[in-house]
């Protein structure tokens, strides 16, 4: 499968980058690590006239603790750096825990946090070659009018399958978005739409530049559990991130983020109310698991049955909460 021809643009500054985006809006794609974009272009899911390679924009890279607390991550920061960052491991462990499960070591060297956040939603009926997609007369996300996953449906259920956003949601992360009209900051939770074929609120002329982890989320213990068939390479078939804060032997706050089971990564609501201020018991953890499973609406967008994937959301949530609530050592 050949890569469709395109013109490569390589800006050196954010200003140049957003100017080019504005100039070619609608006919341009941003390339960070390229680990998601390039395979998709080979499959002719995108055939933009221009590709904007932002890897020369130095200012977009790096993990920077802020003077008044909190940490700022450049959108171009490779996942490998996040996985191994001491600052993050110490203060925001759920993020490196999730980052280290992405794909494989080689892909983590190339893949960026920005790319992971902006990652296209995935579906077995979508992530296929042009020839393959013709065989099913295309699907609603790309070139077609049908959903094969929810037959008769007119909505796209392609699943968001990035690992780190589940963790970032637990950390209440914010993102900075740049365009020629300036900068805007949004909560990551508000970035996603929940619609498979229009999954993020990002205009064609906009660039994700930074991710902020607030000081208030520092010090939460963190765990990430990922359902996959192989121990490496595989995208999540279900993913659960849990950030948990304890005080005086009680749970103070718990946040549970899910991925790969909905068109958007999602926070499970009501878990804190269920567990905060109480002692951890098997039943309470179980109840949190049930809550999480109710938030998950997996469909046949990937391998393994939806039933099983939802069941694993329940099991993983429970296991992660129990282990974080009871483990001795902090972090």
């Amino acid at each position: 499968m050949s890569l469709p021809a395109f013109k490569l643009l390589r800006p050196r500054t954010t200003a140049e980058a957003v100017a080019l985006l504005a100039q070619h809006a609608g006919n341009i794609r941003i390339l960070a690590g390229g680990t998601d974009l390039l395979p998709s272009m080979q499959q002719k899911l995108f055939a933009p006239e221009y590709v904007l390679d932002i890897r020369r924009v130095r200012e977009l890279s790096g993990i920077r603790p802020q003077p008044h607390g909190g940490v700022e991550l450049g959108a171009l920061t490779p996942l490998t750096d996040i996985e191994h960052s001491d600052v993050l491991r110490q203060h925001y462990p759920v993020l490196p825990e999730a980052a280290k499960t992405v794909a494989s070591p080689v892909l983590r060297n190339m893949g960026t946090i920005g790319g992971n956040i902006c990652l296209d939603t995935r579906c077995l009926w979508y992530n296929q070659s042009l020839q393959w997609r013709k065989s099913c007369a295309f699907c609603i996300k790309k070139d077609g009018d049908l959903c094969h996953v929810a037959p008769g449906g007119t909505r796209c259920w392609a699943a968001f399958s990035g690992d780190t956003p589940a963790a970032l949601l637990c950390l209440d992360a914010e993102i900075e978005i740049a365009s020629t009209s300036g900068l805007r900051c949004v909560k990551l939770a508000d970035f996603y739409t929940g619609i498979g074929d229009d999954y993020r609120r990002l205009r064609p002329d906009e660039l994700l530049t930074r991710v902020f982890l607030p000081a208030s989320s520092a010090g939460y213990r963190g765990a990430y559990r990922k359902l996959r068939i192989r121990g490496s390479i595989d995208y999540p078939l279900a993913g659960v991130a849990v950030a948990l804060k304890r005080s005086n032997g009680h749970i103070e706050d718990v946040r549970v983020g899910l991925t790969a089971v909905n068109p958007a990564p999602a926070l499970v609501s009501g878990v804190t109310q269920l567990l905060a201020g109480r002692r951890m018991t098997e039943e309470r953890a179980e109840a949190a698991g049930v809550l999480a499973a109710q938030t998950a609406k997996p469909l046949t967008t990937s391998a393994l049955t939806p039933e099983y994937r939802r069941e694993m959301i329940r099991v993983f949530t429970k296991q992660a909460i129990v282990s974080l609530a009871t483990e001795r050592k902090l972090g």
Partner: peptide, 22 residues
């Protein structure tokens, strides 16, 4: 149940993709 799924749209049951449809 390894065949039945959760489908938030109309059909109550997951079915193998209907070839006729496409």
């Amino acid at each position: 149940n390894l065949t039945q799924g959760v489908d938030p749209t109309a059909p109550a049951k997951f079915r193998e993709h209907g070839g006729e449809l496409c």
